[in-house]
Simulated assay, not measured.
Amino acid sequence: MDFIIWVFTNIGMGFVNLFYVIFNPSAWLDWSDKTAMVRFIYYGASKELFFVIFDIFLVMTVVGAFYRKFLWAVVRGFEAFANTVGRFFAWASLFMVLQQIMIVFLQRIFKVAEISISPFGYAFTRDLSWYGEELKFYNALIVCLAASYTFVQGGHVRVDLFYAGMRHRAKRVVDMFGSLFFIIPFMTIIWMFGWFFMWRHLVTPKVSVADSLELLERKARLLKWNVETIGFSPNGFDAYFLFKILLISFAGMMFIQGLTFFWRSMLEFIEGEASAGKYQQLDESNDETAEIAAAAH
């Protein structure tokens, strides 16, 4: 009973907090005030933020159930966003290959030790080992920022024992269940721990998921930027804080896609089998087997 009261209390407070952050942006966006900055850090992975998002989700779901054109527009918008971001950062694979070829030629044939790039008159000089380790960053870009795109395209791996043989509405029920109880919870956990993991490498003193708001506010007067620039080798890639930002980006985009997939499944459940795959922007493929597999899902 106490848990139910706690849930409904936080749902109600979610609306209060939503209006508060809208009408009091300086309380969390004015980073010249270190107290506002620690509030941003704390609330960025808090139950308060979760229930604000949950309230928005509830409102949009209820409204969308009655005004399906509105919810279809939301689904199309989020899927278009995932597709656009994924298609753009998929080009990182080409840059990764070209850079690897360049490194091999310069290091093995021309015996070059470093590369200088001078756009707009500013010289950016790094050792070849820096560019070699940077390849991992390209790979992380593809994995983190194209994951939701892959999900939209149906390119993720599934172990299918029963799903393909189910009827349309049964599939949609399974999809809604998977969104609510697998995608969204797991992405929430990754976000909550990844958020503080990221900030631990951006500011000092270190912050932790276990820190209370009161403790963080006491730390505020000592707070300062301390961006991690330590590499695994003396001349290696030294911007590993970007990987932490990518982790958060991955969790955020997949969380949004989890909500989007729930709404799509709900709408397809309501409208029937004729709406399956409605408005989906799928890439064309010459792989007939892959297309059949995607259609089955």
Score class of each variant (00 low, 15 high):
Val75Asn: 03
Arg126Ile: 03
Thr188Ser: 11
Val174Phe: 07
Glu133Leu: 04
Ser32Ile: 10
Phe181Met: 13
Phe269Ile: 03
Ala164Ser: 15
Asn17Val: 05
Glu288Asp: 13
Ala45His: 02
Val38Arg: 02
Asp55Ser: 14
Ile184Arg: 01
Ala294Tyr: 08
Ser116Pro: 06
Ser129Gly: 04
Phe151Asp: 01
Arg218Asn: 11
Ile270Phe: 13
Leu246Lys: 02
Met60Asn: 06
Ala251Trp: 04
Trp130Gly: 01
Leu18Cys: 09
Phe3Thr: 14
Val209Met: 10
Gln107Asp: 07
Gly86Val: 05
His156Ser: 14
Val104Gly: 10
Phe23Lys: 15
Ala45Asp: 06
Phe243Ser: 04
Glu133Tyr: 00
Phe66Asn: 07
Phe237Leu: 06
Phe177Gly: 09
Ser179Gly: 15
Val207Leu: 01
Val159Gln: 05
Gly154Trp: 04
Leu106Met: 11
Thr289Arg: 15
Ala45Phe: 05
Thr84Asp: 00
Phe70Val: 15
Phe261Leu: 11
Gly165Met: 05
Phe120Ser: 07
Asp211His: 07
Ala80Met: 12
Glu271Leu: 13
Gln153Phe: 06
Phe66Cys: 09
Ile117Cys: 10
Gly236Gln: 02
Ile190Cys: 06
Leu141Thr: 07
Phe78Glu: 04
Val97Trp: 09
Ser249Tyr: 00
Leu161Met: 13
Pro119Leu: 13
Ile115Arg: 03
Phe193Val: 08
Met176Leu: 14
Thr84Val: 11
Ser208Thr: 11
Val209Phe: 15
Met266Thr: 06
Gly77Leu: 12
Val62Ile: 15
Ala140Thr: 11
Gly44Trp: 01
Ser93Lys: 04
Ala113Pro: 00
Tyr149Gln: 07
Asn139Lys: 04
Leu29Glu: 10
Asn10Pro: 03
Val207Ile: 05
Glu133Lys: 02
His297Asn: 15
Cys144Ser: 12
Ala65Leu: 14
Met176Pro: 02
Ile22Pro: 03
Ile256Glu: 03
Tyr163Ala: 08
Glu79Lys: 08
Asp287His: 14
Leu145Ile: 08
Met96Val: 06
Phe3Asp: 15
Glu284Gly: 15
Arg264Ala: 08
Ala239Met: 13
Gly44Phe: 02
Ser116Asp: 13
Val104Gln: 08
Tyr42Arg: 07
Ile142Ala: 01
Tyr163Glu: 05
Asn235Ile: 07
Trp199Ala: 03
Gly178Phe: 00
Thr35Gly: 08
Ile270Trp: 11
Phe182His: 09
Leu49Asn: 07
Ile248Asn: 08
Val21Asn: 00
Ile103Asp: 03
Leu145Val: 09
Ser249Thr: 13
Ala80His: 14
Arg167Glu: 05
Val7Asp: 07
Phe23Asp: 09
Glu114Arg: 12
Tyr42Thr: 04
Ile11Lys: 02
Ile189Asp: 06
Lys224Ala: 15
Gly236Ile: 03
Lys219Trp: 02
Leu259Asn: 05
Tyr20Gly: 02
Phe81Gly: 06
Asp160Leu: 12
Val207Arg: 03
Leu71Glu: 01
Met1Asp: 12
Pro205Gln: 09
Met187Gln: 09
Leu259Ala: 07
Trp91Phe: 13
Arg264His: 07
Phe19Met: 14
